[in-house]
């Protein structure tokens, strides 16, 4: 699974992307975010407020119930501010 982080989520976590396989119990977006938070204080801080975390799986917006599987591209980022 490829994980991408953008904007202040990227600067708080300290990396822009990584490739990893979460434990088998992680089957959906909400579970993935919970597991990421447990990986250390940087992740816990960046992902602490659910309201400020948007998730896209394979470049499409999804909610917490959306499934995640090996090979997915999962992006986590704050609310967008373009235009």
């Amino acid at each position: 699974m490829k994980l991408l982080y953008f904007a202040w989520l990227r600067t708080k976590i300290g990396i822009a992307e990584e490739v990893l396989e979460p434990p088998g119990g992680v089957t959906d977006v909400a579970g993935l975010v919970e597991w990421l938070k447990s990986r250390g204080p940087r992740f816990a801080d960046a992902l602490g407020n659910d309201k400020l975390v948007r998730v896209a799986v394979n470049q499409t917006y999804v909610d917490g119930r959306h499934p995640v599987k090996p090979g997915d591209e999962v992006a986590l980022f704050p609310p967008v501010t373009g235009g």
Partner: peptide, 26 residues
Amino acid sequence: LVDYLKTKAPFWKQEETPDGPRWVDA
């Protein structure tokens, strides 16, 4: 189009201010 791209297109602005760089809040 403008309203939707402002809330959906994945862009993020970081401003340079006298106090240092600052990510723009939505």
